[in-house]
Simulated scan of single mutants.
Amino acid sequence: MAAVSSLSFPAIGQTSGDRKLNVPSARYLASNFEGFRFRTSLLYQSVGLRASTTASPSVFYCMSTATDTPTVSETKSSFLKAYKRPIPSVYNTVLQELIVQQHLMRYKKTYRYDAVFALGFVTVYDQLMEGYPSDEDRDAIFQAYINALKEDPQQYRADAQKLEEWARAQTSSSLVEFSSRDGEVEAILKDIAERAGSKGSFSYSRFFAIGLFRLLELANATEPTVLEKLCAALNIDKRSVDRDLDVYRNLLSKLVQAKELLKEYIDREKKKREERSESPKANEAVKKCLGEYQYLSQ
């Protein structure tokens, strides 16, 4: 993979003349994240840590001060220092765009980490990195990415898994009726609904919308009205969710096409290497046969 790691995606597209497919470049894929941008105005407030009064003790609100807020370049630098191996450009271009956007979101005044947001990001990351050459490297990149944002990668994974397991046990009706039941995940959703309803302590994001979509997907809640009811129960604007999910679906389509061509390129190069290694063996076999023929002809 050393040769592939430094290969730009446009070059891959040029080597695939046998397929007439309008495949986007890595740079164009990153531009699709324009819909994922967050407002760039950063407002800061004093450091604080308080537990929700309605949620379980595991729900925390973390805030940063202006004095300990890193710049975008510092966050990117932290990521690159933590993971120093080259990343194929079809993945790296989108990752770099994502980390810039998430940095701006992370240090907004109203930002609060929550499990639905974590599920959304983990879903996006796993979709983006699906098919990455090394599982170990994929996990290491995830660790470096979240640590660069000064958050806990283990918490992201644990919370995402917790919500996934919970959603698989739900139905369309039980999913939207979380407020009438007790439980750890129910408490998380109640806390989100309370903060979103207050219009001051909740920061909506595209990752949150994708987290909601993932909950519906795992619960097999395919009816269009379920999303509307869930948004209403959480005090979230459904129009924003619909818009962001459209951007997400479009991005996934572009990524699938891009990674198909990357796989084709890798397979083709592997086949060429195998053919080159087989060629000397074939020549030796021919020489041996000719030698035996000449010997028998004497």
Rank of each mutant, 00 (worst) to 15 (best):
L7P: 00
F9A: 10
I12K: 02
T15C: 14
R19I: 06
K20N: 15
N22V: 11
V23D: 01
S25V: 15
A26T: 11
S31C: 07
F33V: 04
F33Y: 09
L42Q: 10
L43N: 05
L43F: 08
L43T: 12
L43M: 02
Y44P: 14
V47N: 15
R50Q: 04
A55T: 03
S56V: 04
S58F: 01
S58H: 09
S58P: 01
V59G: 03
F60Y: 11
Y61F: 06
T65Y: 05
A66N: 08
T67E: 15
D68C: 08
P70N: 00
S73H: 02
T75L: 03
T75I: 03
K76I: 04
S77L: 06
S78M: 10
Y83Q: 09
K84A: 12
R85S: 11
Y91I: 01
Y91G: 06
Q96G: 06
Q96M: 09
Q96N: 10
L98T: 12
I99F: 02
I99G: 00
Q101R: 09
M105Q: 13
R106L: 05
K108P: 11
Y111P: 14
D114P: 00
A115F: 00
F117A: 01
L119S: 05
M129N: 08
Y132Q: 05
Y132W: 05
E136V: 11
D137M: 02
D137F: 03
R138A: 10
R138F: 03
Y145C: 02
N147A: 06
A148C: 03
K150T: 02
E151L: 09
E151T: 03
D152Q: 08
Q154D: 08
Y156F: 12
A158N: 04
E164N: 14
E165I: 11
E165T: 15
R168I: 15
A169H: 05
S173V: 14
V176N: 08
E186S: 14
I188W: 02
K190S: 06
A196Y: 08
S201M: 12
S203M: 06
Y204L: 06
R206T: 14
A209F: 08
F213D: 14
L215H: 06
P224C: 13
T225W: 00
V226Q: 01
V226K: 03
A233Q: 08
A233P: 09
A233N: 01
D237L: 01
K238N: 09
K238V: 14
R239T: 01
S240Q: 10
R243K: 10
Y248G: 09
R249N: 02
L251C: 08
S253K: 12
S253L: 08
V256E: 05
L261E: 05
L262C: 09
E264R: 04
Y265W: 10
I266Q: 14
D267R: 13
E269I: 13
R273P: 00
S277R: 14
K281V: 12
A282E: 06
N283E: 11
N283D: 07
E284K: 05
A285K: 14
K287L: 05
G291P: 07
Q294N: 06
Y295D: 11
L296A: 13
